[in-house]
Amino acid sequence: MSSIGTGYDLSVSTYSPDGRLFQVEYAGKAVEAAGVAIGLRCSDGVVLGVERILHSKLLVKGANRRIQSLDDSIGLASAGLLADGVHLADRGRDEVWNFRETYNAPIPTQILADRLSMYVQAYTAYSSVRPFGVSSLVAGVDKTGPRLFCIEPSGVFYGYRGYAVGKGAVLARTELEKAVGKETEEGGVALTCREGVLEVARIIHLVHDDNKDKEFELEMTWISPESNMKHAVVPADLLAEADAKGKAALEEGMEED
């Protein structure tokens, strides 16, 4: 315990001798502790899903959403400190507005992710601030097609076919690789959004740790032909179906064990 940090973790503007920024790494711990968030880029759109852990029975159903809209066709799901995610989304809306004001066109998803990542990075370079305690999945459809990015507390961002952050993300990514694998096979086709919703819900149920967190709500949005290529919540009937199927698949898997 005493070896952790050893004085190099008191400020984000101080490197450790082996070139690490401990504060940034601790921010990563905040992400790992949060309910999983999954993004999946499909053939006709993008799907976002989060496992919203209910830490109290007193919480209102459906409140405290973790997925937010940044523009008509861009959504952001965050894992980590919820308030940091909300602040980042606010900043995202400013960037969306600024781009449109300047160029009279919707912001491409990649440029938004780039601008947000620069903002996040700035919080790793000054001693007066702490890094963002969130990893954020930015999903959008623009004229280049469906796009998915993940911005991490360090400020790096990568584009993905599918990605997961938060608790159980490693297992979720393995599952996503299988789903995406079909696309990369010879003659393979990527999932549609409708299939993607079922897949993401299944994975969330799979990685959910029933022993640690009892209750959770499945929160899902998409940008799909069915939502008119706008970022919107997945329709209630489809969400219920995905939820039920995810639960059923999990129980099936348990019986096999």
């Binding site: 959403r65 809209s69 523009d71």
Partner: peptide
């Protein structure tokens, strides 16, 4: 348009 778009974005949460 910008005002309404911003409102639409916020209305999800």
């Amino acid at each position: 348009d910008a005002t309404l778009r911003a409102d639409r974005s916020v209305s999800l949460t």
